[in-house]
Design a binder for these strands. Sequence first.
DNA 1: CGAAAATACGAAAACGTTTTCGGTTATGAA
DNA 2: TTCATAACCGAAAACGTTTTCGTATTTTCG
Lengths: 349, 349
Amino acid sequence: MEQVTLKQIAEYLGISIATVSKALKDYPDVSQKTKALVKAEAERLNYQPNSFAVNLRTKESRTIGLIIPEVVHFFFGNIVRAIITQAEKKGYLVIILQSDDNPELEKKQIDLLISKRVDGIMISLANNTVDTSHLQKVMRLGIPLVMFDKISKLIPCSKIIIDDRKAAYEATKHLIDQGCTKIAHFRGPLLPQNSIDRFLGYKKALEDHGLEYNSKHVFLCDPIIYEKGREHAAALLDQDMDIDGIFANTDMVAIGALSVFNERGVKVPEHLKIIGFSNWFISSAMTPTLSTVDQDGIKMGKKVFKRLFKELQAKKNGQILPPETIAMPTKVIGRGSSMLSKTAVAAKS
Amino acid sequence: MEQVTLKQIAEYLGISIATVSKALKDYPDVSQKTKALVKAEAERLNYQPNSFAVNLRTKESRTIGLIIPEVVHFFFGNIVRAIITQAEKKGYLVIILQSDDNPELEKKQIDLLISKRVDGIMISLANNTVDTSHLQKVMRLGIPLVMFDKISKLIPCSKIIIDDRKAAYEATKHLIDQGCTKIAHFRGPLLPQNSIDRFLGYKKALEDHGLEYNSKHVFLCDPIIYEKGREHAAALLDQDMDIDGIFANTDMVAIGALSVFNERGVKVPEHLKIIGFSNWFISSAMTPTLSTVDQDGIKMGKKVFKRLFKELQAKKNGQILPPETIAMPTKVIGRGSSMLSKTAVAAKS
DNA sequence: CGAAAATACGAAAACGTTTTCGGTTATGAA
DNA sequence: TTCATAACCGAAAACGTTTTCGTATTTTCG
């Protein structure tokens, strides 16, 4: 029941603790013979180093922290998954915390991770995080920090993002290409850079294609949930607005809208075309299938960890890497909700 | 940049390390005056105890491990979320590992958690885990272990589950109550107790209501994915099987089937009724809305952590609790895919 | 006033590892 | 044989905390 220690192996073999330790780590100043003996004994006793002691001595925990607004989320879920997998391959364990989009909680969680002495931190900010003092603290302590998806431009750390503006532009352009002329936007909350950029991309696309921008055609979804999609879709119909296309901030919202149109007999895509964002798995299972913007969570998660790992390695060598911002590619996926032809088309971006 | 230690506070105040430590922990043998001084100084220097040292000394990490087959999953996602939240409230951090339904990986991850000296472990087994030696090892080391959802009856630890058999029985009965007489079952893989029990519940319901059980009406979904639902639904139609109801192992499979019926113009629920399992959020957003069995991941997650916490506390007091198996309630949720009336009905269970 | 009891503090060991540095023995060369 | 060198091993410090136990000082009370 009690875990075996170096001391026990040493006593059993009648040698010193130091030699046992060195033998197990293949130090050159231990003979092959004793190495073999020690290793055999360690194996036999099922020795596992006490990581508390190792951590204390080496000052590293081989553990990294991850804070995200929400775990139950197709996009974030994939990121989490990719990060865990990659980290494990490199011998790192991941502590995951969920901020629930609550800046206060986020702050506490950062402190928690710091006090646990994690080697590095990855974070996607809460929607309305404005005070960034907790993040500055992380930087000040020299803990490698990588932000992704929802970032703050104020913090000089590495960031993995997508070009939301460009992606939104292309989603909107897709609707225009399909013949839409009056396009509404179901936007996300006002604060996060994310929703701002998507909104700006939408607006720019309209302007570039000679369509009038009308602020009445922009609906706020805060929070970004299914119900908001339903709500605004219903409003659209009730007010008899002359809309023939919708660019939704997120698939979830688009699906909400879609459900209202299905209920009310509004034909999609004939009467109205709609495109979402994120390419949740479920969007391809809807009727009609939902057009969307593909945003690969797995690739992003990989990138996030890899960047952190690089900074971790650099720190070990006493270096400090200059922050880097990487934009992941996205692509518009045209499906049944925006295209009459049944053949789905993918436009590169 | 360097973290402040007890020693520094002690030197600054000209007192001993021991007194500083005790002052911060409100030991009775420290005067109010010095306590105040120490606390003020600690606050000022932003002291945070080095958890490595604390862990080493106290032999507990205040960290627990969680292994699940898949993070990106509505049900598991909710469980993860609930566990993280509850754990944080009690001062525990959670290390999450994903087994990808791979028994080998699961084994390695258990070893990883043991070597990290987590205080306790929560696990939902991979679908085809048969060798349970790694779990026995956990038990042998006296590490509190709680299994949930996908469990092994061979391990004498606490388990949080649902009564799959009963739930499946009631789902099938629901279809029968709606007038179905030829009911197919899209079942899960052969090994996990889960799918076995759901299958058995289905079979029992048929028999209890005078309907003939026909093994040709049972379709295997392995893995349990959307595509399998589509595949079997298509087969059903192609072979012109005279089926008027489907009980699917999972909502995902039901949604796959639903999409085929939508495409092929099979009216649901008029021609055919269908019910899923798990009550994924998305099931209420489908057209038609999907009937299902509600299985509350959040409640289950809470229960899982609470049980582990209890065992953790007991262990601290040198006790060891007898294992307990808790079944969480489920309930059938009738929606558009199985009921003609638009009003959804919830039958208690 | 003197003894007993209460109060406040600190010395030191312990947790299990890593790593430096010095020492001992064996090896080889002169 | 002698000395330099290489090969191997171990003593000991260090990481930062917690906690026991002893001691010195003060207080209490007969």
